[in-house]
């Protein structure tokens, strides 16, 4: 079973050379720490920055320079800043290669719910609905099971949707799964020490298992 860092580390393996990547808040933010040294990648922050760098040193903190999670950050050499319309313009024009975000629920059709719990949480969707509507490739980083012990991989989402038929891949503490275009979660990899049986029990949506399922490999 993986911890949050482990999920981030596994997702980092999905990032290819010369990718422009948008990272959501939470586990996705950690992915930046595990990018292999030999590949070039450029991070977009949807409040208006390409070429986002690491968090600043105390002496470099600039209130005019934050990321989409409102944290202070830095710009790498070659960075560019722009307004919100251009930022979402490049997202909808599919200039961003990969979006990594968290979710409360994902359905076997690739629908995602991650912005609202009726009667409980009213924060808003921020940029999530734009990102999922237009991203070329979406990977969801999340726990397989919620705090109440229920599966988050479902036949259909019960919470208000953020987008439909958009999630391509899911990485959880238990497994890597792809979402098939015709529907269903195809099991690709098991987390170290996790059995197929455990993943079956934790997945309420249609789970497709073909042949031997390999364990995730880490360097």
């Amino acid at each position: 079973m993986l911890d949050k860092e482990g999920i981030a580390k596994r997702i980092a393996q999905e990032i290819q050379n010369n990718f422009y990547v948008n990272l959501g808040i939470g586990i996705p933010t950690l992915v930046a720490n595990y990018i292999p040294k030999d590949i070039q990648v450029c991070f977009q922050s949807e409040n208006g920055l390409l070429g986002m760098g690491p968090f600043p040193k105390e002496s470099e903190v600039d209130p005019d320079l934050i990321n989409a999670g409102k944290q202070t950050i830095t710009m790498l050499p070659g960075a560019a800043v722009f307004d919100s319309a251009m930022s979402f313009g490049m997202i909808h024009a599919q200039k961003i290669d990969l979006t990594i975000l968290g979710a409360m629920e994902v359905s076997e059709m690739g629908d995602i719910a991650n912005w609202k719990i009726p009667g409980k949480m009213v924060k808003g969707m921020g940029g999530a609905m734009d990102l999922v509507a237009s991203a070329k490739n979406i990977i969801v980083a999340m726990q397989h099971i919620n705090k109440a012990g229920e599966s988050k991989l479902l036949p259909t989402c019960s919470l208000p949707l953020t987008g439909i038929k958009c999630v391509k891949k899911i990485v959880t503490e238990l497994a890597v799964l792809s979402v098939l275009p015709e529907g269903g979660f195809k099991l690709l990899e098991r987390a170290p020490g996790v059995s197929v049986e455990t993943i079956k029990k934790a997945t309420l949506g249609k789970l497709i298992i073909e042949g031997e399922i390999p364990e995730m490999a880490f360097d």
């Binding site: 949807e46 919100s84 319309a85 909808h92 921020g126 999530a128 609905m129 509507a133």
Partner: peptide, 24 residues
């Protein structure tokens, strides 16, 4: 959606009555 918010501003600034977006 955040992009819709930006585009509805942008449309007003460019004299366009509306825009189309897949968000939502």
């Amino acid at each position: 959606p955040q992009g819709t918010l930006a585009f509805r501003c942008m449309a007003a600034g460019y004299g366009m009555p509306a825009i189309y977006t897949p968000a939502g």
